[in-house]
């Protein structure tokens, strides 16, 4: 038996695998995973999905992409909703075809190309997974808080396939989020980072005039940013760690104003989400966030409770370092 495939196999039937050392090592440590914090491009998603979808799922996706491009108003909502049962919900790991072969033959290397010409997965994105990333936290949050899933990736491609004249992206993301279940909402939040524009010079002024979708129309970008921020803010109001984490991906790192972003990070501390889920944490962390984290640590200690190591790391007076948040969950 192919050990790598065997290690992955149990996860294929798990929707929300609890975040444990074992599950994460298998999913991320062995093969590299697309993390919540990583900047993920559309070509990368296409590349990985080629290895991960069954032939049947790949055919479904190819059809769905064509349908959505042709008639988004009629097809996008419907296809967006059924992605999980059509394509699967496993964690998005960069499994090479050779590794995927073995007992789980559904992931055949012969899966047809679902989108563009062959791409090479940018190593830099997968390298965003630290070797030592697994950090089991008591009261574990689901693994999807830290890693993309296959259905997240497929939903991003569906959104990208929708024609985007004028304010279409803003329209679609708002529409799909408002009418979506938790998985669809997570899919929208994750897609924001891949569909969204490059970072503004200052997060406090997110509407920088630069739009890859329609460079001549700054209104498109402004609308997407405004709508995306509304969704991120909504997700941060939920108590669903899957949505809170997805809301703090690269899109929020680029565009969410600092006061709201800081409170998002604090929400992670209060809801058991490892800080490694937060995109660009080391760059955006500032003295005020450190003060808030220190207050959190003091409150936990005064109550005689354990304190997460990543909270201590953030509370350190010199938090802006090149080191990622530490792994030891409690001390």
């Amino acid at each position: 038996m192919n050990l790598a495939a065997a290690a992955i196999a149990p996860l294929t039937s798990t929707t929300d695998a609890a975040f444990t050392d074992a599950a994460f090592t298998d999913a991320a440590g062995t093969h590299g995973a697309v993390t919540n914090a990583a900047d993920v491009s559309l070509p990368l998603l296409r590349s990985i999905l080629r290895h991960r979808l069954t032939p049947q799922a790949a055919r479904w996706l190819a059809d769905a992409l064509a349908e959505v491009a042709d008639d988004p108003r009629a097809m996008l909502r419907r296809r967006f909703a059924e992605v999980g049962r059509r394509c699967g919900r496993t964690l998005l790991t960069d499994v090479a075809p050779a590794q995927a072969a073995g007992p789980d033959t559904r992931r055949a290397a012969s899966a047809p190309d679902v989108a563009s010409p062959p791409d090479t997965a940018p190593a830099a994105v997968l390298a965003a997974v630290p070797d030592d990333m697994p950090a089991a936290v008591p009261g574990a949050v689901p693994a999807v808080c830290l890693v993309w899933t296959v259905d997240d990736a497929v939903r991003t491609l569906l959104l990208a396939a929708a024609p985007a004249p004028a304010t279409a992206w803003a329209h679609w993301v708002a529409e799909l989020y408002a009418g979506g279940d938790a998985a669809e909402r997570r899919g929208v939040l994750r897609a924001l980072g891949s569909l969204g524009p490059p970072a503004p010079a200052h997060p406090e002024h997110p509407n920088a005039p630069n739009n890859p979708n329609n460079p001549n129309d700054p209104n498109v970008l402004n609308d997407l940013n405004e709508q995306g921020l509304a969704l991120v803010t909504d997700a941060l109001r939920t108590h669903d760690p899957r949505l809170v984490a997805a809301a703090l991906g690269p899109y929020a790192a680029r565009h969410l104003p600092t006061p709201r972003w800081r409170h998002g990070v604090l929400t992670c501390l209060h809801s058991g989400i490892p800080l490694r889920a937060v995109a660009d944490l080391t760059r955006r962390a500032d003295a005020e966030l450190s003060r808030m984290a220190a207050a959190y640590v003091r409150e936990r200690r005064s109550a005689g409770r354990t304190v997460r190591a990543d909270a201590l790391w953030l509370a350190d007076p010199t938090p802006v370092t090149c080191h990622p948040p530490p792994l030891v969950p409690e001390c």
Partner: peptide, 9 residues
Amino acid sequence: HTPHRDKAI
């Protein structure tokens, strides 16, 4: 209600 996050402030 006093806030969960940044309670003292």
